[in-house]
Structures are given as structure tokens and as C-alpha cells.
């Protein structure tokens, strides 16, 4: 088989091009690490290894230091995430009004666990502490949309909307 190194290098460059572009807005200063991580995650949907390595080179930090920050904050994700993020509220009000059942139903529908992502990268499921809409309990958010006063029966319909 012919050597693929050239292609690999080219693919890597193409992959990193959006990152390089967003880095143009920043100076190489340690204090910009978190904003850069946020922008990069916005761009890629998660923080791939090569992206973190590139950021560490740009900021003159070690790869481990960048990884340490990225793993400290729960807002950062090192694995690919679904196109749609479903957040299921587990706060007190939702708990009392059956939030757990909603979560179970979504797990069944999508065939993934809490924190998981579907194989087709369409959905990521997360339970969260409270999304601050107790009056609508039990409540979930899909991306920026709120769906309240839910029953498990309504779940398939909601998921269908985002397919």
C-alpha cells in the first residue's frame, strides 16, 4: 500500500484549520486558556486530543497542564457529543414529580446511559442538578428548548422532533 503520510498530514491540517483561525483572536497568554477551550469546544462540539495539544503549543503550556484544566471543569468534554444535548432535571421539584421516570424513558428510547451519546452522534443524555424551572417540573431541556410538565408517554414525541 502506498504511504498515506502525506494525506494524514493534510487531514490533520484541515482538521485544525478552524482552531488556528479562532486562535488568531488571542494572544499567547495563559489567562486565555479557558476562553480558548470554550471557543474550541463551540467549534468542534468537544475537545479532541489534537486540539488540546495544539492549544498547549499556542499558549506555551504543557499538554498535561491544558488537560488538567479541561478535565477539572464539567463544562468541557473530551469525547464527541451528540448534535442534540438532552438535559434531564434531577432537582428536588422534578424528583418529587417523577423526573427519574422521565430519565428512564429517555434512556430506553435512545438505548444509552446517563452521560452517554448515541452511536449516530445524534443525542447526548445528561442528568443535571436543577435547571431552575421548578414550576414546570418534571422538566427537560433539549439544546435551548424547555419541555415541561412531562409524562414519560410524551418522551418519544419530543425525541422525534429532533431527529
Amino acid at each position: 500500500m502506498a504511504c498515506q503520510c502525506g494525506n494524514e498530514e493534510q487531514n490533520r491540517e484541515e482538521f485544525l484549520a478552524p482552531l488556528r483561525e479562532l486562535l488568531e483572536d488571542y494572544e499567547s497568554k495563559e489567562k486565555y486558556l479557558i476562553p480558548i477551550l470554550q471557543d474550541a469546544q463551540e467549534e468542534y462540539g468537544y475537545l479532541p486530543k489534537d486540539v488540546l495539544r495544539e492549544i498547549s503549543g499556542f499558549l506555551n503550556l504543557s499538554f498535561s497542564q491544558v488537560y488538567g484544566v479541561a478535565t477539572f471543569y464539567s463544562q468541557f468534554h473530551l469525547e464527541p457529543r451528540g448534535e442534540n444535548i438532552i438535559r434531564v432535571c434531577m432537582g428536588t421539584a422534578c424528583h418529587v414529580r417523577g423526573g427519574e421516570k422521565i430519565l428512564e424513558k429517555i434512556k430506553d428510547e435512545l438505548g444509552i446511559e446517563d452521560g452517554g451519546t448515541t452511536d449516530d452522534l445524534h443525542f447526548t443524555l445528561e442528568s443535571v442538578a436543577c435547571i431552575g424551572a421548578c414550576g414546570l417540573a418534571p422538566v427537560i431541556m433539549v439544546n435551548d428548548d424547555t419541555h415541561g410538565r412531562l409524562t414519560p408517554e410524551q418522551v418519544p414525541e419530543i425525541i422525534e422532533e429532533y431527529k
Partner: peptide
């Protein structure tokens, strides 16, 4: 060098 770092929390 910072080869080692605190990670996770």
C-alpha cells in the same frame, strides 16, 4: 516541564 499535573477533580 510540567509532565505531571492534577487532573479531574
Amino acid at each position: 516541564v510540567s509532565a505531571l499535573e492534577f487532573t479531574e477533580r
